[in-house]
Design a protein around this nucleic acid. Structure first.
Lengths: 336, 336
DNA sequence: CTGAAAGCGCTTACAG
DNA sequence: CTGAAAGCGCTTACAG
């Protein structure tokens, strides 16, 4: 910038004012400065600016595992909204290396703090209460999607309206004549979220006068590997015939469930209807294509980023609505 | 840091030296400082450090579209290697918003320069020659994966050894008795890369004494939408029976091709063998599972990042090897 | 073994 | 309308 000032024959203060579009500089001076900018290929030093201003215009995004087909769209949403607002995004993935995930998060956190990000968007319960408090104490805003039960006050949340989503799912199945619906659910899931999708599922069943049976529940320890969904479904199929449809924690589990049904010689949807949650790409190309409760991932990212920027104290909590995509994996009950 | 100095009763200079593990401070002084670090939850201000040191220890990654299932793994590889090296990563996706992609890239570029990243990793030809030169002029290292024909000197490259990869593909098909192999290729692809995978495919065919026929080539304008692969295959199937296998630009196209074959009442692999390139997740769950030339995406990211750090002038070019994954979409020729 | 001082590239009252 | 000066939080010769 000192080169600029020299070239334009003015002081640093004036250059700074013109570059930032502040009033009070003659046309002529401004023109000389802009000409110098072009000639010297000047690009402001954002580092110096950040130090001086005490704001980096940078936000961090923290997700469990970038490779999970769920997150890229979410991050895209965050990025898109961020760019619109002139912010940069540092993406941090927990499982970036395979070692102890807690210590990875710890390091990511320190990195983010020392880089003085203005805010942090994260998906789910990735940090401890103490860690979140530390961020808040450092005046770093925090918004979390699908927030855990306990969050320090000051944290903003983006919720998915599974109440209405599960309503759509059960409504769809019910209208196809399904009365006995199984569930593949993740063990300990309620440890992670404030309100679980399963509870909403049960509520929706109840509202339709349909039963929720423990014996029709398949449990999985992890929901990011189709093999586990397949195994859970295989166990559940000992009771094949007792139920006519199964709702799965997510699409990965649903794809696994379809494989298990196929292994057992059952046809989807004639013998069994299968519903997933997420709508990842693979769900549209499996056979049959999966009926699934689509989560608006991009939108979730945008909403999360905007919640971070929001000044008002009113936006403590934003809500996003899922949307049922009906494809080939669901059909009339007892069509076989 | 001034708080630290006060708390420990020493000068800033001493604090700095101890924090950075430099020699020449008494045990006792160091201990006092570290105690203060703990008490005050001190975290170094990386912004100030960057300004002073003239290095940000940050690298940018530029990809065409984050949502493309290809890139997340690549980015993960970059991140993983970066963290190991104590670097942060700013991820930039071209298609983050839908507007004119050139101007998006232009803005991303300015952002990266003004943030003074130490280096940039990008996939493919995302920037113009002039833009790349500008980076180099700003002393920002550049490495590009699948580099275009023309790159300014100083740019490092990561190549995929499609020569050997296509060798594996053709070898596999040939050993199954296929002699007439079709191809689905992207129009203008050679405008983007220094050496195209198609050329390697043709070489591999020639080496096996197999013909390359223009009439067995299906063209697509874009390779990230299965619908286009499906349409290309549909056109190609006017000549069904003339060829017994098809190799596709990538898995997206291959999945589309399988759909088209299915539409036409052909069975895969009995009537037609299909091979993709990439090995995205969906390829493992389509029916039949896709035989594909897997690209080591994570490794590519790691190699790219490391190439950036490499001091020596020798590593102008790194090479990564693909690996054929045989699944259900290929079978003996004429098995029908 | 330790400290005072300069400087990285900016912005912003404060004067003029 | 414009400039001189201080300061953001660090590091690093240079003295002692």
């Amino acid at each position: 910038m000192v080169d600029l000032a020299t070239a334009a024959g003015v002081s640093l203060a004036t250059v700074s004012r013109v570059l930032n579009g502040q009033p009070g500089a003659s046309e002529a001076t401004a023109a000389r400065i802009w000409r110098a900018v072009d000639q010297l290929h000047y690009e402001v030093n954002h580092i110096a600016k950040s130090l001086r201003m005490g704001a980096t215009h940078t936000v961090g995004v923290l997700v469990h595992d970038l490779a999970n087909p769920f997150y890229p769209d979410f991050i895209k949403g965050v990025e898109s909204a961020a760019h619109r607002a002139g912010l940069s995004v540092i993406v941090c993935s927990g499982a970036a290396d395979e070692s102890d995930s807690t210590s990875v998060m710890q390091r990511q956190l320190q990195m983010l703090i020392s880089r003085r990000v203005d805010g942090l968007v994260m998906y789910g319960r990735l940090l401890s209460l103490a860690q979140v408090r530390r961020l808040l104490r450092s005046h770093i805003g925090v918004v979390v999607v699908e927030p855990p039960k306990r969050t320090p006050r000051g944290v903003r949340a983006v919720d998915i309206d599974f109440r209405e989503g599960m309503e759509q799912v059960v409504d769809h199945l019910s209208s196809l004549g399904h009365r006995r619906i199984a569930l593949i659910r993740q063990r300990w899931h309620e440890e992670w979220v404030a309100r679980s999708r399963y509870r909403d599922f049960q509520d929706a069943l109840a509202e339709h006068g349909l039963p929720y049976r423990k014996k029709w529940v398949g449990w999985v320890d992890d929901v990011n590997d189709t093999a586990l969904g397949r195994a859970a479904m295989r166990r559940l199929l000992k009771r094949a015939g007792e139920f006519t449809a199964v709702v799965c924690h997510n699409d990965m589990m649903a794809i696994g469930a379809m494989q298990a049904a196929h292994d057992a010689g059952l046809r989807v949807p004639e013998d069994l209807s299968v519903v997933g949650i997420d709508d990842i790409f693979a769900s549209s190309v499996v056979e049959p294509p999966l009926t699934t409760l689509a989560l608006p991932r991009m939108e979730m990212g945008e909403v999360a980023l905007n919640a971070l920027r929001e000044e008002s104290e009113t936006v403590r909590r934003a809500v996003v609505r899922p949307n049922l995509v009906v494809r080939g994996s669901t059909g009339p009950a007892g069509a076989a």
